[in-house]
Amino acid sequence: MLSDLLLVTNQGLVQVGELTKRKVIDYKLNKRYPRENIVKVKLPPRVISDCYVDIAKLERKKFGELLTYFTRVLESNFFNLDLDYFYNNIKTLDIKELRGKILNNHVLGEYLIDTNEILLYTDCKNTIYHELFHMASSCFRGNTAFSGFSQDDVGIGLDEGYTEFLTRRYFGKSRTFITNYEDQVKLVSFIEKVVGKNKMESLYLKANLKGLLKELRVYLTQDEVVDLVSNIDKLRYLYGVEIKDFSLNLYLDYLRESYLIIFKAFVRKLVREYQQTWLSNVIIDKKVNDFLEGGNIRSYVDGKTYRITGLDDFVNIFQEEFSKIGVYFNESEVRK
């Protein structure tokens, strides 16, 4: 329907929705409106839905103030082209409060794609932003439900993590899941560093898991990508049920494996950049520091802290990947 075209001008960014293929060379740009006494303008639905939320009508809905604020934040921070599903769903969205009916797994809210409803189980208003992001990134294609980075049952862990990540980025911390979102949120934040913020946000809002996997496949093998997605799904499942001793080790293993895969993606990206434009040690250093943010990654489960991975693992991956192109760094150089 619309093309992803950006026009960068001295007036700033312009997002081009549609552009005719017709060659427009000899034209006269009329600065006067073509018709007097206009009774009605009938625009195609896609043009209307692209750019129009009836704010007045939205304000009158239940949670109108929050919906309006969410709309303004989205429109201020994302391109119209990324908001197709948002504009499509916001018009008919229903929000129901079902207080006192917290589900067994302590979920405080959920978005139902089939009925385009948000169900809120408490009066925790921060939850609504999380569910609104689900709404803004959901659609059906044929009989398959796509929501953010989930497609039917695949990618749910990635999707929940990134939904919460975006909610915190733009609205502060919500509490949809009482148990723990931290690990998923942290994992997706690292993935975003590989894929890029604007790209990943756009892919999420367009419910494009395939696009995300394609981005990752530039640096990872098919098996690594599959493992990453399924590990994060398993994390969500394991943390959705109460973590017992027998599942804790599994949980920590999946978490560690996920990080190591993401480390590989990042380092391989760095290797490519190094091959394309020679990077100085200073630049490599900065990129690595920006990526790692300290080095050691921990998980907090049931009040206890577990070290998941850290600089040692990263150094090993770094040295291994660079050695494949005949570049050797000694350990002390990498650790700096």
Binding site: V14, G17, E18, T20, R35, D50, C51, F79
Partner: peptide, 18 residues
Amino acid sequence: ITTKDGEVEYEILATFKM
């Protein structure tokens, strides 16, 4: 666009947002 004189059809060449 419909006016008192009738309806006129226009071809969309571009849409964009600034």
